[in-house]
């Protein structure tokens, strides 16, 4: 390769470039088409580029005038505390149910351990994909329209969301295991279930715990807003205040959400750290 390029350098005196002809042209055209698409979408979406800088100023103004004196007293209310507890419960149940569904689903959706590659694997993969592709808000709206207002649709929406989220991670984790123990157990005559319990599960136990903590963290973040469409929890509070244009209270609620998410993140980081150490 190097001798070739030095030869051609002598003959053509060509400038050095990292990519040679066909590849360089392909790369150039890809970048160009991405750029053209972006410019076209600015045009298509009617974005007023010349007013953009002024808008940033207005953004700051809105923030300072409308949201600034945060109404802290409003969120110190016991009533609000109840909603916070509800949100935590919803996230907990959603994550728990989602994980319970995930364990068989991840098993079926991993190409190396699935009971049947032609029937079970595609179905399980499809279920995981559907749960992942549909946003948690859409789940919430669908369940609210089916079951009515309340926390049950919220829990179900979070369950589907967590199934999609954890299912993919868990299946990937199973696909990465060492097949030695699995074959050993198969050789001694273990059935499908025994292979799973004694061959696979000990290998993914720690990873599954990590996934569980992560899922809870994500579920809590989603739980703070599923109430927005009537599924209970803090989101409902948020919606009410936004609809009433009580911006100072909204700011207070947002601050409380940020604080809670940070707390949950710190706890989950600590827990994951401990698990990876105890391994």
């Amino acid at each position: 390769m190097t001798s070739q390029s030095s030869k051609s350098a002598i003959v053509l005196q060509r400038k050095w470039s990292r990519f040679r002809y066909p590849e360089s042209a392909i790369r150039y055209s890809i970048w160009l088409s991405v750029f053209v698409f972006l410019v076209y979408s600015v045009e298509y979406l009617d974005i007023p580029l010349e007013r953009l800088l002024g808008m940033l100023g207005r953004l700051g103004e809105t923030l300072a005038n409308r949201y600034y004196p945060v109404d802290i007293e409003y969120i110190m209310d016991a009533d609000y505390g109840e909603y916070v507890v509800e949100t935590i419960q919803m996230a907990y149940l959603g994550a728990l149910f989602g994980l319970l569904v995930t364990i068989p689903l991840g098993w079926f959706a991993s190409i190396n351990m699935t009971p049947s590659r032609y029937y079970v694997y595609p179905v399980a993969r499809f279920i995981t994909m559907v749960c992942r592709a549909v946003h948690e808000m859409i789940w919430a709206i669908l369940f609210v329209s089916i079951l009515g207002f309340g926390m049950l649709p919220g829990v179900l929406a979070l369950t589907f969301f967590c199934t999609g989220f954890a299912g993919k991670l868990f299946a990937e984790e199973i696909e990465a295991i060492d097949m030695g123990p699995v074959e050993a157990i198969r050789a001694t005559g273990g059935n499908l279930f025994q292979v799973m319990v004694f061959g696979v599960f000990p290998q993914v136990r720690v990873a599954l715990t990590g996934i569980a903590i992560y899922t809870w963290d994500v579920a809590f973040r989603a739980a703070t807003v599923v109430g927005f469409f009537g599924a209970g929890g803090m989101g409902w509070y948020l919606k009410r205040n936004i609809m009433q244009i009580e911006t100072h209270r909204t700011a207070a609620i947002l601050l409380s959400i940020i604080a809670l998410v940070v707390i949950s993140e710190v706890i989950s980081a600590w827990a994951r750290d401990r698990i990876s150490k105890s391994q």
């Binding site: 509800e86 149940l93 728990l96 309340g150 926390m151 829990v155």
Partner: peptide, 14 residues
């Protein structure tokens, strides 16, 4: 779990 189920699913649902 029991407490959460009690509050969210049994009591709160219409």
């Amino acid at each position: 779990v029991v407490w959460s189920v009690e509050v969210t699913i049994i009591e709160d649902t219409d």
